[in-house]
C-alpha cells in the first residue's frame, strides 16, 4: 500500500514500471510490487518542491499523449506496445527537458529493479558471497584475503619493482617517471 503516492500518481507509476521493467523471454521476475515500494519511498524522501514537481511531470507524461502521440488515450490506459513506443519517443526527443524527465522516471523504476535479489542474482552480482569471503572481523586487522588474487599478485610485484608508488612527479612527466624505472 503506497504511503506517499496519490491514486492517480500510483496508476501512472504502475504503468511506467510495467513499460520500463527490464525483462526478456525466460526471465521476468515478479518485482513490480518492490519497484512500486521503492518509488513510494523515493517520493516520500523528496524535498517539498519536488513532491509537487514530480507528480506534475508524471501528469505531463500521462496526458502528453495528446501532443506527442496524437492520441486521446492517456499513457496509463494505452496498450503496452503503444506505451513502449511513446516512452521511446520521450527518450529520443530533441527537447532536453523531455529526455531529462524520462531519465528521472527511469531512475525511480530501475533503482528498485536492479536492487531486487532475484535480479542481482541473475546478473551475477553476488555481493554477499564477496563480503563473506573478504571480511575480517576486527577493524584493526589488515585484509587477509585478496579481492582478486591475480590483481593482488600483480600489484605486489609492481610494488617490489618500485613501479607502484605515490609518485611525486608532476603531471606530464609520466614518460620520464616510467623511463627512469625501466
Amino acid at each position: 500500500m503506497s504511503q506517499n503516492l496519490s491514486r492517480g500518481t500510483e496508476r501512472i507509476i504502475k504503468a511506467l514500471i510495467e513499460t520500463l521493467k527490464p525483462r526478456k523471454p525466460g526471465f521476468d521476475p515478479a518485482a513490480e510490487e518492490f519497484m512500486l515500494q521503492v518509488a513510494d519511498d523515493f517520493l516520500g524522501a523528496l524535498p517539498s518542491h519536488m513532491k509537487i514537481l514530480f507528480p506534475l511531470g508524471l501528469r505531463l507524461l500521462e496526458y502528453g499523449t495528446l501532443i506527442f502521440a496524437f492520441s486521446p488515450i492517456p499513457f496509463s490506459r494505452m496498450s503496452l506496445s503503444k506505451r513502449e513506443q511513446y516512452i521511446k519517443g520521450w527518450m529520443d526527443s530533441k527537447i532536453p527537458l523531455r529526455r531529462d524527465l524520462i531519465k528521472g522516471m527511469k531512475a525511480i523504476a530501475l533503482t528498485g529493479y536492479y536492487a531486487f535479489p532475484e535480479v542481482m542474482n541473475h546478473i551475477g552480482y553476488n555481493l554477499e558471497e564477496h563480503l563473506k569471503r573478504i571480511n575480517v572481523v576486527d577493524l584493526n586487522t589488515p585484509p587477509a584475503v585478496a579481492c582478486d588474487a591475480e590483481a593482488a599478485k600483480y600489484f605486489r610485484e609492481m610494488d617490489k619493482l618500485g613501479k607502484w608508488g605515490i609518485v611525486d612527479g608532476l603531471p606530464g612527466k609520466a614518460k620520464k617517471y616510467f623511463e627512469e624505472r625501466e
Partner: peptide, 16 residues
C-alpha cells in the same frame, strides 16, 4: 548495478 543501469541506453529487454 542499480546506478550503472540508469546511465545505460534503453529500457525493457535492451536494459536486461
Amino acid at each position: 548495478p542499480s546506478l550503472v543501469s540508469l546511465s545505460l541506453p534503453g529500457f525493457g529487454r535492451q536494459s536486461i
